[in-house]
Simulated scan of single mutants.
Amino acid sequence: MLSGNYIRKVAVVGAGGNSGKYMTGELLKTGKHTVTAITRTDSNSALPEGVEVKKVDYDNQSSLVEALRGQDALIITMGAMAPPEQQSKLIQAAAEANVPWILPNEWSPDSANEALVKDVFVFEKMPKAREHIEKLGKSSYIAVTTGFWYEWSLAIPAAYGFNLANHTVTLFDDGEAKISTSTWPQVGRAVASLLSLPIQAEGESRDRCLDRFKNSLVYVSSFTVSQKDMLDSVLRVTHTGLDDWTVTKEPSKERYTKGIEAMQKGDRMGFARMMYSRVFYPDDCGNYEKTRGTINKLLGLPKEDLDEATKAAIQRSMEVTWG
């Protein structure tokens, strides 16, 4: 039995989603947490085995409050285009239910970078969510910055620039700007390790506690790599040579502008081109390992194999068709 200095009960919104299922699985694996999936009344999405389930109606605030009552932490995972009022309702409900800790819907590049947030509109809601939590004053947040998901993003031609099926790649600028990026399993391990820390410091380990990260952003990653590093990995995994690929270049700022223009014409892939090309600007906005540092070591996160993650991306690219 864990003492009162530890988080035991964790509610997860999006427990069956791309990243949420890894967070949920790793939390359960610790044997230290009871995990409750917060899901819509009409949802039929598959959930990891071992979770408790609470059905909610986002139009009925009392159902959210009741579902969160007694929870030690709330993890919110939602798609980039989810209505922002959904998270606002959850934050308000967590405050009313006296949930002490919230991991808001971050899971992104560095939303503390003001220039990046200004240029990528979907990132604007992240600082707003943090401000909302602080203003209510009932919960503390820890915003986990992960960069873009590697195996998801490498599989999308409009994202990291690779069309894995057609053996083509577009390098932004010279392809040498490094960005920090994470795999889904690493994100899951990071969340489980973070929420397994004592709330207040114990013994001589003054840094290993949640209070140290109260109302702040923390940074975790799998790799800090350039497009050329990714290309080298793809070549190794596919047993191909550079001559087997068509490599072109495009200025990152030009790609960003064209992405916005395409969005305005209704091209949904324009959104991806805009958002992803912005983190590859040569200003280190995507390289938070360099600009902020990570807590990988403190959390005991493993050093991953880039080629294994690339294999997962290639497999995913064969299963999902992107416009």
Rank of each mutant, 00 (worst) to 15 (best):
Y160V: 02
F162C: 07
N163G: 11
N163V: 10
L164E: 01
L164G: 01
L164F: 07
A165E: 09
A165W: 08
N166G: 14
N166Q: 15
N166H: 14
H167T: 09
H167P: 02
T170S: 13
T170N: 05
L171G: 00
L171C: 06
L171I: 06
F172D: 03
F172L: 14
D173I: 09
D174F: 04
D174C: 09
G175E: 06
G175P: 04
G175R: 08
G175V: 06
E176Y: 12
A177W: 02
S180F: 12
S180M: 13
S180D: 12
S180E: 12
S180P: 11
T183E: 01
T183K: 00
P185T: 08
Q186T: 14
Q186W: 04
Q186Y: 04
G188R: 01
R189S: 05
R189A: 05
R189T: 05
R189V: 02
R189M: 12
A190D: 03
A190F: 04
A190E: 06
A190S: 09
V191R: 00
V191Q: 01
V191P: 00
A192F: 07
A192D: 10
S193C: 06
S193H: 12
S193W: 05
L195I: 06
L195G: 00
L195Q: 01
L195F: 09
L195E: 02
L195V: 04
S196W: 03
S196T: 00
I199L: 09
I199T: 04
I199P: 00
I199D: 03
I199W: 01
I199K: 11
Q200A: 13
A201Q: 13
A201P: 07
A201W: 09
E202G: 08
E202Y: 01
G203H: 12
G203L: 08
E204W: 14
E204D: 15
E204H: 15
S205A: 14
S205C: 09
D207E: 14
D207T: 13
D207F: 13
R208L: 09
L210S: 00
D211H: 07
D211I: 04
